[in-house]
Design a protein around this nucleic acid. Structure first.
Lengths: 182, 182
DNA sequence: GTCTATACACTGATAGAC
DNA sequence: GTCTATCAGTGTATAGAC
């Protein structure tokens, strides 16, 4: 029971992750999601920016859940986070290096453009960071390490997609684990 | 003695860093650099893509020199790299969080678009990584740590620009230094 | 709520005079 | 080498019938 609104949001998430904000046109979104343009402006009167905000919020929530669930599966924080990052590396490779980092491109493109999109990305990054910090709550530098984790994952995705190799994220996984273990 | 060609490349570097590839139009480049459009296609017959490749190569070389010079100033690798990253944090703040990471946005936007731009970014990231790895040559995991450094700087810039705070890169600097010192 | 047709600005690119 | 005028295509957004 996918509503028109949901179809638009999901297709927008997919295209934004692969192409970014400015390279993704509304015409492509309505064509690939098979929804008429009139419906888009009915559901999202704010146009492209409002649609992107909803899409980024949606995918941010999904990723937050995945972080929480995956980290809960392994007791040792260093090992849990290492496996989580290695899993991202595999997924980036599986996408043909076309996806990975669902909000990274948007965050950069809109950092000096749309303030509402920038704030949405900032909120999501904060939520992700909190999830990692909670897993590291025994560590004296939990918050600081959580920031490094988010930063190195985002940067690692860039390096993997640019080099068409999963090695960068695998190295990030190993080094982050080494840092946590001390 | 700035030639027309150099003016175009330098202005393109500036705009690509702040806005990204797709948000930067050729009209804006020629207007702000005060060079006519005819000259652009005379110097860069390949159009926007060729101009961007030249711009990315140019700024990549400048940054490589800055990495080499700055790292040579302090003997201890952990301290040298820490200060280098803290310096980036200050520069990002100084730009009003509108600049920083001169090729990051381009690397992401063109990862699934232009193959020649993607390869150019890949080459530059490799050169930067080698510069850090050489400074860490005494460390058994020099290459792996150099990858983490590039990734966490690129990601740290994203977090700083998105949150309008220099804290993320300062934390990255501290954690990377902790990792190197062991 | 859904859909089509269209307005209007702007994009990258080119032609041709100078 | 430089500059202007202009092309064809696409972008976001809107109007109005159904």
């Amino acid at each position: 029971m996918a509503t028109t609104r949901d179809q638009l949001i999901e297709k927008t998430c997919e295209l934004l992750e692969m192409q970014g904000y400015h390279a993704t046109g509304l015409n492509q979104i309505i064509k690939e999601s098979e929804t008429p343009k009139g419906s888009l402006y009915y559901h999202f009167p704010g146009g492209k920016e409002e649609l992107a905000i909803e899409a980024v919020s949606y995918v941010g929530r999904i990723v937050l859940n995945r972080i929480t669930e995956n980290l809960a599966e392994i007791d040792d924080p260093a090992e849990a986070i290492k496996m989580f990052i290695r899993n991202i590396a595999v997924n980036v490779e599986r996408s043909g290096y076309r996806a990975g980092g669902p909000i990274t491109t948007i965050a950069l493109e809109t950092a000096s453009g749309s303030d509402s999109l920038r704030e949405t990305c900032h909120r999501i990054y904060s939520e992700w960071q909190t999830a990692f910090a909670e897993k590291l709550s025994d560590h004296p530098r939990a918050e600081s390490i959580a920031t490094l984790i988010i930063a190195s994952i985002e940067g690692g995705v860039i390096l993997c997609r640019t080099s068409r190799s999963r090695t960068p994220l695998e190295r990030v996984a190993d080094e982050v684990a080494a840092l946590i273990a001390g």
